[in-house]
């Protein structure tokens, strides 16, 4: 994850409390989604950014996961996202995400 984005995530977790923060991803692939999710839960796996070694354990979802779709307005989702469900491997993304959440998320 971009270093500036890591810094922002860290700052917001401090400011609002990690239990009040939800990170929502739009990554194109399962692997990239998993890495970003790992970064905001277990710490930056590349040890490059401000979240290296920082285990925030934040709640994190990919926007295409069922849990997100259940909460957002269906019309807006259809307009903004739905076409990409035909493009991305949503199942792979959802598997990666839930596995990271199960391992590292502290506020489920």
């Amino acid at each position: 994850m971009d270093l500036e984005n890591q810094k922002r995530v860290k700052d917001f977790a401090e400011k609002y409390g990690p239990e009040n923060l939800v990170v929502i991803l739009g990554a194109a692939e399962g692997e990239a989604a998993g890495l970003a999710a790992e970064t905001v839960t277990a710490g930056d796996p590349t040890f490059a950014g401000p979240l290296a070694g920082v285990q925030l354990g934040l709640t994190v979802y990919h926007i295409c996961e069922d849990e997100m779709k259940a909460e957002v307005d269906a019309g807006v989702y259809d307009e903004q996202i739905s076409m990409m469900e035909m493009v991305m491997d949503v199942d792979d993304i959802a598997n990666e995400m839930s596995s990271i959440r199960n391992d590292y998320c502290k506020y489920l």
Binding site: L25, G26, T59, Q80
Partner: peptide, 24 residues
């Protein structure tokens, strides 16, 4: 999961861009 929470959005240019997630 989302109601009443502070959301941080990390979109992807080749996946779902930030503003689209934001709208949702």
């Amino acid at each position: 999961i989302l109601n009443g929470k502070k959301a941080v959005i990390i979109g992807d240019r080749d996946g779902i861009p930030g503003p689209s997630i934001e709208a949702c």
